[in-house]
C-alpha cells in the first residue's frame, strides 16, 4: 500500500505551471529519489506534499487519509518530517535544544533520545555548542538529526548533501541505508552517485511533469532522462 499518494497535483504561478498533474505513489519502506533538472518543480512539488505550498489542484493522501487541506504542522504530526533545502536550524540555540524541540513535540523523552539522535549523525560531542557555530556540513547533519528525532513515517530530505564534503557524503549515504529500516525516505538530490547508492526507485520530474520512473538501472538507461539533463530533450 502507498504511504504517500498524489493525484493530479498541480501548482500554477500566474499562467506558469510549476507542477502539472502529477500522480505519484510512494510505497511504505521505500527509499525514493526525486530528481530533475533545475526548475523542474521538485521543491514546489515537495512543498505541496508537506503543506508549505498550497496546490492549485489535486489531492495528497498520506497513510490512507486525505491531507490536502491540512496545514503544514498537522501533516508533520501525522508522521512527516522535512529538512530544508537551505539549512534551517535554530542558530542561536544549542544543538541539544534543536533536537529536543523535535523530540518534545511528540512528547518523547528528551533526556534519553537527544544524545542518541546527535550521536547517530556524529554530533554527540557537540550538544552544548550553538547550532550557528557549527560548520555548514555539521548544520546539515544536525537538521537530519532533528528529522530522525521526530521518528517520522516519511522523511523528506531536500538536497541534503548540497555543500557537504566527500567524506561527509559517505557518512550520509550510510545513514540513509540505516534509516530505511525505520522510515520511508523521499530524497531530492542532485548528486547522482548518492542517488544510485541509496534509492530503490527514482522519479524524474521535468517541466513540472513526471518524465520517468523506475529503478536506478532503468533510469540510468533511459534516453529521455539523459536528454532532459543535457537540455536537448523536448519531452
Amino acid at each position: 500500500m502507498s504511504l504517500l499518494q498524489t493525484r493530479g497535483l498541480t501548482k500554477a504561478f500566474g499562467g506558469l505551471h510549476a507542477v502539472q498533474d502529477v500522480d505519484f505513489d510512494l510505497p511504505e519502506g521505500e527509499v525514493r529519489a526525486l530528481i530533475g533538472p533545475n526548475g523542474a518543480g521538485k521543491t514546489t512539488f515537495v512543498g505541496m506534499l508537506c503543506g508549505r505550498v498550497a496546490p492549485t489542484a489535486g489531492a495528497v493522501r498520506f497513510a490512507g487519509a486525505d491531507i490536502s487541506r491540512l496545514p503544514a504542522h498537522r501533516r508533520i504530526r501525522e508522521g512527516m518530517a522535512y529538512t530544508f533545502q537551505i539549512t534551517s536550524v535554530f542558530a542561536r540555540l544549542s544543538c541539544r535544544e534543536n533536537v529536543a524541540l523535535a523530540v518534545r513535540r511528540r512528547k518523547g523523552d528528551a533526556a534519553r533520545e537527544v544524545p542518541a539522535a546527535l550521536a547517530r549523525v556524529g554530533l554527540g560531542d557537540r550538544a552544548d555548542q550553538l547550532a550557528g557555530d557549527l560548520s555548514y556540513g555539521h548544520q546539515r547533519l544536525l537538521e537530519i538529526a532533528m528529522g530522525l528525532a521526530q521518528k517520522p513515517r516519511l522523511l523528506i530530505l531536500d538536497e541534503p548533501t548540497q555543500g557537504l564534503a566527500d567524506s561527509e557524503i559517505e557518512g550520509f549515504v550510510a545513514l540513509v541505508r540505516e534509516v530505511r529500516a525505520e522510515a520511508t525516505v523521499l530524497l531530492i538530490e542532485h548528486n547522482m552517485s548518492v542517488v544510485m547508492d541509496t534509492a530503490d526507485r527514482i522519479t524524474v520530474l521535468n517541466f513540472g511533469e513526471v518524465l520517468a520512473e523506475g529503478t536506478p538501472e532503468e533510469i540510468h538507461a533511459d534516453g529521455r532522462v539523459q536528454d532532459a539533463y543535457l537540455g536537448t530533450g523536448d519531452a
Partner: peptide, 19 residues
C-alpha cells in the same frame, strides 16, 4: 521553549509540527 524557537526560526518550528 517553542516560543523561543518561533522567534529564532518560525518556518523550522512549523516544520517540526508546532502550531
Amino acid at each position: 521553549k517553542v516560543l523561543i524557537a518561533i522567534r529564532e526560526n518560525e518556518a523550522r518550528a512549523e516544520m517540526l509540527g508546532y502550531d
